[in-house]
């Protein structure tokens, strides 16, 4: 679907909040509205929709993968070359614990990072409607992403609420 987006830049947090609630009242849905800031704000500062994520599940997946890998490596290499060294029997548990532990954590970390990227919807190849001043100067950006027919009205609303400048982009 050919969706267009329009960005309005604001300075005041309250104005963004008011704009957001008025846009919502006039029928824009939560997934069509997005706030962009250069640094974190307390959750719900602009009355934006609370983002839900499942990041806490990823480490467990990673742990399962890592444990399996460790099991294959430790058991496999010992059985492939069953030589008793230092009086330590083949498949003795204490040394295997070490490898289990490290691999489990390693894969947890990797999968968590992948999860963090996925949950932040990254990587994003095209920036769409975006302005550099958001990051560098602390402007607050409000993006409305709608079909082409409604874009004009959205831009007008943003301007009405005092957006310093608006910018169009495509999704």
């Amino acid at each position: 679907m050919a969706n267009k987006s329009v960005l309005g830049l604001f300075v005041d947090e309250n104005v963004v909040g008011d704009t957001l609630s008025s846009l919502r009242k006039s029928g824009y849905k939560d997934n069509e509205l997005e706030v962009m800031t250069g640094s974190p704000y307390p959750e719900g500062t602009f009355g934006e929709a609370e983002p839900h994520h499942k990041l806490f599940r990823y480490p467990i997946f990673g742990a399962v993968i890592g444990f399996t890998v460790a099991l294959i490596i430790t058991v496999g290499t010992q059985l492939a070359y069953p030589l008793v060294t230092g009086g330590k029997p083949i498949l003795s548990i204490p040394p295997m614990l070490v490898i289990f532990y490290e691999m489990t954590l390693l894969f947890s970390v990797i999968v968590t990072i992948l999860g963090a990227l996925f949950e932040s919807r990254l990587p994003r190849i095209f920036m769409g409607a975006y302005d550099e001043r958001i990051m560098t100067e602390g402007y607050i950006g409000l993006v409305v992403t709608v079909s082409e027919s409604r874009i004009k009205k959205a831009e007008d609303t943003l301007k009405k609420f005092g957006a310093e400048s608006t910018k169009r982009g495509w999704e």
Partner: peptide, 30 residues
């Protein structure tokens, strides 16, 4: 990677380091 600073991205930015800290601490000890 096209980071734009949406609330979702900031929330992950707040959560992921804490989660990773909890995972890295046991590695550090080991």
């Amino acid at each position: 990677l096209g980071f734009r600073g949406t609330p979702r991205q900031w929330k992950i930015q707040a959560t992921a380091p804490i989660l990773l800290s909890a995972l890295v601490l046991p590695i550090f000890v080991s």
